[in-house]
Design a protein around this nucleic acid. Sequence first.
DNA 1: CGAATAGTGTCTCTCAGACAATATTGC
DNA 2: GCAATATTGTCTGAGAGACACTATTCG
Lengths: 250, 250
Amino acid sequence: MDGQAARDERAFLAAYDARTFPPFAVTVDVVLLTVREGVLSVLLVERETHPFRGRLALPGGFVQVDEDLEQAAVRRLEQETGVRRSVAHVEQLGAFGDPLRDPRMRVVSVPYLVFAPDLPAPVPGVRVSWLAWVPVRAVEPDRLAFDHAAVLAAGVERARAKLEYSPVATAFCGAEFTIADLRRVYEAVWGVPLDPRNFHRKTTGAEGFLVPAGRESVPGPEGGRPAALYQRGHALQLHPAMLRPTYATS
Amino acid sequence: MDGQAARDERAFLAAYDARTFPPFAVTVDVVLLTVREGVLSVLLVERETHPFRGRLALPGGFVQVDEDLEQAAVRRLEQETGVRRSVAHVEQLGAFGDPLRDPRMRVVSVPYLVFAPDLPAPVPGVRVSWLAWVPVRAVEPDRLAFDHAAVLAAGVERARAKLEYSPVATAFCGAEFTIADLRRVYEAVWGVPLDPRNFHRKTTGAEGFLVPAGRESVPGPEGGRPAALYQRGHALQLHPAMLRPTYATS
DNA sequence: CGAATAGTGTCTCTCAGACAATATTGC
DNA sequence: GCAATATTGTCTGAGAGACACTATTCG
């Protein structure tokens, strides 16, 4: 029986014509977030080609037929923005498939959310003439191409929620960072000031979140006691969670 | 300037040939969960056609060219399982696009997670000869078609997490339900017993979660005091959150 | 020394978990 | 009455938020 079923299946596939299905294109977009000078910022590129030529957009492009979705996103990330995957956190943000989101044809886009440390100004890569970090609060939604305003909003909201119960905030920092560095990440992403003392106690108390690097930072130009340096721990969850203040239902 | 850009864009679109892009197909799958007799169960169908003919699978199918993704999922839900959208909670679960997940061609699937009350045994609908509620713990992952084992696992994990900080557990109940009904939902989805007394205090204390229906339920065959009936409230978040016991990192 | 930042301790309030006690039904 | 379920109350410990206080640097 099993042999018969396998033969059936092979015969079916040999006769299969892919053109009988509705033709879609699939793209990936990259919502690359970082914290620069205390401000949550997103990397935007200027589109060089139609549609939306000259408009700002998220980096991204078409997925190749034999290419995994995340692999396609990472390829765009590295080619167009110069950010290496190894220093960043990458997670899928969902699928956006409104039939009218692309004027060319039916396109389903799978955006990926990326957290990266504050990097030197990225250089325009393949097929990109201009790109820049833009503070998220300064982005004008109506001026973005496609439905990228909605994608960006989903990415920012995901980032805000994720900081509460996961240790991914460390992906915004370098390999070694101070508690104050980490606090500035939370403050920038959430857009609220946090009490440095309570923040210190909570982060150092959460099991597996931070590992002491055994070294100290150099104080800034305004002086101050040197801070201990930490590395990210091995925990996958943040427990207890770090809840946003004024947990309004919004 | 704007007029020139618009003319450029129109000219580009008129000359555009959609066949220059890699051909994908896009499908939707439905992870329909319910709680039957205290057991978290998923609706599975038997595939009538190749590939994976005769294997169990999630309901789903190809998205039409002019059809929204969620609309496509709801169409499958209603056509293949008879569950009406109005009684259920529907949310997107992400995109699954491994290049080898479908032997026919490159297919990206966008599964939707659906929570529904315990409904009368659904009737096989369009293109479906057999379907049944299967306890999630009884599903044999290797016997599911495509990558549906991974999709189901993602859906169950999303459901477990979502119950903690959102009021969607009420979607597993009917319009009116008792606190014990709701507790059995949490117990079934999380797979752990909960203290009825603490559960009662927490759910009735969470603002906007539940609204008293002003009526009482009929006690079961074993007696017991009648319970007050509730309806779902208007809250979008569950605050304070209902955290799973033994919050292991796992 | 003063300003600035890092880190610790203390108090209060909320809330989760354990569980006693009471209320209301069917048999 | 007895079993079963519903609901309220009480206690304890963990943890969040407010904030006093100490520690260490630069100028």
